[in-house]
């Protein structure tokens, strides 16, 4: 090659290593499960229940995350106030919490003997061992992914755009809905994709907080774990389905946003 070609070569080697390391396990899932097994595994009673439950609970938690997270991220991105760094850190904290800690923390907070357990029960809400508990677990672990990304997206919007809409007499609410959200949309979509992926794959917090029951709390990752020991092929096939669904989500976001949505820094 050309002179001083060692650095590009090193970059290439590292990329190749990363690519192989990250794709080999995923490829192995598909190598080990034939399409016929895959379809057969979906015919099992528990498999479709798990898939349907995963989609329902993920959709519910994403809806909550978008509705609450978007305005919250907007506030954090457009205002500065004392203690903002602390607030941001606290919101981001679940990002780095191990799932087991998330599960214990949720039990201690809103579990039946948790600090708010009595209030939750008094309100007639059933969380532990119930589908609503799965939604709580997914929302807890997935929301920071969205809020973080949404904050960055809002912060990157030209302030003059909002000023312009205000000069034209629009209220802040109007500017938020008509200017900020459309302009920040690629970043918001990227955050949604990340949160979706995290919610769909949630395992530990769900198991500890919500338990595992077919059709009620047993999401796809829990169903995979349940089959791991008795029916490895079925576990593989279900994993393949989860990979396919996750990849489809990732891809559709990329396609819809013309590839810019998953860029690191939305602008």
């Amino acid at each position: 090659m050309t002179r001083s070609g060692w650095f590009p070569a090193l970059l290439g080697v590292c990329l190749a290593a990363a690519l192989i390391f990250l794709t080999l396990p995923v490829v192995a899932i598909f190598v080990n499960s034939s399409p016929r097994e895959l379809i057969a595994s979906l015919g099992e009673p528990g498999a479709l229940d798990a898939l349907w439950l995963s989609l329902r609970t993920t959709a519910a938690s994403i809806a909550i995350i978008l509705l609450v997270g978007t305005p919250a991220a907007y506030l954090l991105a457009t205002r500065s106030f004392r203690g903002k760094a602390v607030v941001v850190t606290l919101i981001e904290l679940p990002l780095v919490l191990p799932p087991a800690v998330a599960g214990i923390a949720l039990l201690a907070a809103v579990g039946p003997s948790g600090i708010l357990g009595g209030a939750v029960e008094a309100a007639g809400i059933e969380l532990s061992l119930a589908t609503a508990g799965v939604v709580v677990a997914l929302t807890f672990v997935a929301s920071p992914f969205y809020v973080r990304q949404a904050m960055a997206a809002f912060a990157a919007v030209e302030p003059t755009l909002l000023d312009a809409s205000r000069t034209l007499g629009a209220s802040e609410a109007h500017g938020f809905l008509r200017v900020m959200i459309p302009v920040a949309l690629p970043g918001l979509a990227a955050g949604t994709a990340l949160a979706l992926g995290r919610a769909l794959g949630e395992f530990g917090a769900t198991l500890m907080f919500a338990g595992s029951f077919q059709g009620i709390t047993q999401t796809v990752p829990l169903a995979i774990y349940d089959r791991f020991s008795t029916n490895f092929d079925s576990a593989l096939a279900l994993s393949a389905v989860l990979v396919a669904v996750s990849a489809a989500i990732l891809l559709s976001v990329k396609l819809v946003r013309g590839g810019e949505a998953l860029g690191v820094a939305p602008r």
Binding site: L107, S128, L129, L207, G211, S212, F213, T217, Y225
Partner: peptide, 21 residues
């Protein structure tokens, strides 16, 4: 009346000590 099928005994004990079942 079964509300959860736990993958190990710890899960059963944990849910009971937490008052979840």
């Amino acid at each position: 009346n079964v509300r959860s099928n736990e993958p190990d005994v710890k899960g059963i004990i944990g849910k009971l000590t937490q008052g979840a079942a």
